[in-house]
Amino acid sequence: MSSATKTTVFRTVDLTKTYQMGEVEVRALRGVNLELVESEFVVLLGASGSGKSTLLNILGGLDTPTSGQVFYLDTDLTASDDRELTRYRRDHVGFVFQFYNLIPSLTARENIELITEIAVSPIDAMDALEIVGLRERANHFPAQLSGGEQQRVAIARAIAKNPQVLLCDEPTGALDVHTGIVVLEAIARINRELGTTTAVITHNASIAQMADRVIALSDGQIASVEMNVSKVNASELQW
């Protein structure tokens, strides 16, 4: 897979981000340039505080950079206003969060339908649950599901809108190895079968083995970019 033959989905130019956290000023990104291409599975690897979540949030239109530019296809996200960003997220982006962020008062199925109701060309909620292997848990509330199951529901929710990009922020961060692998398998399967451009953030170097490309972030900057010659199946991962 070479990036020359595929469409560039994301392109960033000299991204920086500084924000205020309580009484502390955090310089999360200090000049990031990268490209993500169609159907690619990228792992953004970095320690806590390396700026990877900030980068993902900016790619997903959740946050805006302090300086620099972000392009989604031909759209300059940095030139978009709040309404255009909302539209962008609504139509193109699927998110998976470390802490699942399911609505506790809605069942698994309803959590997915919450999103399909506003999507342009969604897939059926039950089909989305089928993909993550949780069809039979459709009517359970988040509190009745294990962490791994909650995260798989979150993945089903993210893909149910049929997004162009799937952005996952430490999807296994709160999970044990076994359930973590089940979740990663689900993500890999979606990338493989639906061709959704996928970016996974992690501080776990083992997970990098399943990516097409591994981008290491350190202290708000890209430290290295590596192509994986031989991708490893999620089920073979160990940590």
Partner: peptide, 16 residues
């Protein structure tokens, strides 16, 4: 707070 963030991340508008 985090539910609101998720809703927004999935494209629910401020008005909604």
């Amino acid at each position: 707070r985090e539910q609101i963030a998720a809703l927004k991340a999935f494209g629910y508008s401020n008005f909604e």
